Simulated assay, not measured.
Amino acid sequence: MIRKMLVIAATAMVMVQGSAFAQETIKLGLINFDAGPFAVFAPFVKDGATLAVETLNAQGGALGRKYELVTQYHSGAPATAIAAATRLAEQQGVSFIAGLSSSSTSLALSPKLSAMNVLFLDSTAASDDLTGKNCQKNYFRVGLNDTTFINGVRALLKDSGTKSWDLFMGDYALGHDYAKRFTALVQENGGTVQKTLFVSPSVADVGSYISQLLVKPADGLMVLAPGTAGIVLAKQQQPFGLFAKYKSVFSVFSTNETIIAAQGDATAGMLTPQSYFWSMPGARNAAFVKAFEARFNRKPTFVDADTYLSFELLNQAILKAKSTDVAAVRTALAGLKAATIAGDVEMRAADHQLLRSLVITQATKVGDGKGDLTLKSVESMAKISPELNTECKM
């Protein structure tokens, strides 16, 4: 009798252990902002990640295991980003992270990744340095870098024929960098920059800057006002008809699907390069858009899509590696070529920059003070991809 009971107990233990093993998940970390001007993107990051995990699990997960999404919010400062990633790695057992990150937070976080034994697939930070002089072996950029955006603007500038320009730029490192780059593009095309205004993204009243632009405006206006700063500028310029005084209005990060509802029709006509738009061609993207609309009752934004793309690529790397070991997945991800919702892409092995197409969108009026975006063109990977930065040494 005692022997029989021991056998039953041992069998039960094996069954419990086997069940626990079968149910063990692959944890996917998501870092997200809950404060600051970029926090406007946080809900879209969350939705893109949520659908990615749900879709991958519906397809069977990977290696006989399902995925589990684990989220850490932080204030958007570099130190809090490091703390959030550390909590995911040390307290939650996460080896793979994606999510919302500015260039400053990514530059602070990327050197810490190896010690954490974590891979970070970054879909939002654009600084060239992240895949240039500050590249790291555990850092992969899924989004576009600054040079790619500038390559998109170069095509717009050439097609516009506009020669004189005013610049309204965010007063931080990225804004100053873009001002220099755009000025160089204008000069390459035989044009001139008349005014360059640098404005803090946190300024609530930009009336004095609008007044300066209204004095003898140039033929073209270039704007870099990210997140809520783009909403502030769009709404406050509207009573003065500032944008309408320019033949061409270009932007980077200043109007998109995440903020167009708040901007209304104030940005109508503005042309903007971005990484993704829901009406991009391809059966894979069409299926993604259909699933996204069914789940969230709206079209996906570029933020939703790029977050989804991060996990889509990670899943393909895990399947290729046949392992969740960080080193094995890193090797599989470097050089990975894949069909994705954004078309055919390649994760360049030498610097971990994803090579992909870029889209040009245009803001339009849709009546009753409402605005929307339309897809103007898709610029090919071959046309806009950045050259390899030889400063990257992994």
Score class of each variant (00 low, 15 high):
residue 69 L to C: 02
residue 392 C to R: 00
residue 234 A to E: 08
residue 93 G to L: 07
residue 124 T to P: 00
residue 24 E to T: 14
residue 219 D to A: 14
residue 393 K to V: 14
residue 350 A to F: 01
residue 313 L to K: 05
residue 13 M to I: 15
residue 298 R to A: 14
residue 65 R to G: 10
residue 173 A to P: 00
residue 267 T to I: 00
residue 369 G to C: 07
residue 214 L to R: 13
residue 298 R to H: 10
residue 243 F to Q: 04
residue 115 A to F: 02
residue 325 D to V: 02
residue 288 F to K: 05
residue 268 A to P: 00
residue 114 S to A: 15
residue 46 K to A: 14
residue 390 T to A: 15
residue 313 L to I: 08
residue 60 G to M: 07
residue 277 F to C: 05
residue 387 E to H: 08
residue 292 F to S: 05
residue 47 D to V: 05
residue 117 N to W: 10
residue 283 A to S: 13
residue 360 I to K: 00
residue 165 W to I: 08
residue 322 K to E: 15
residue 89 A to C: 02
residue 129 D to G: 03
residue 251 S to W: 07
residue 214 L to A: 15
residue 115 A to M: 03
residue 318 I to F: 08
residue 340 T to E: 05
residue 367 G to I: 05
residue 94 V to L: 04
residue 212 Q to R: 12
residue 114 S to R: 13
residue 243 F to A: 07
residue 25 T to W: 08
residue 314 L to P: 11
residue 77 A to V: 01
residue 392 C to T: 08
residue 314 L to W: 14
residue 65 R to Q: 14
residue 20 A to W: 11
residue 337 K to P: 07
residue 168 F to I: 04
residue 284 R to S: 04
residue 84 A to C: 06
residue 109 L to E: 01
residue 271 L to G: 01
residue 342 A to P: 04
residue 282 G to Q: 06
residue 316 Q to S: 12
residue 51 L to C: 13
residue 148 T to V: 12
residue 44 F to N: 13
residue 157 L to C: 06
residue 180 K to A: 13
residue 209 Y to N: 12
residue 159 D to F: 02
residue 381 M to D: 15
residue 111 P to H: 06
residue 89 A to K: 03
residue 352 H to T: 04
residue 156 L to T: 02
residue 213 L to D: 10
residue 255 T to D: 13
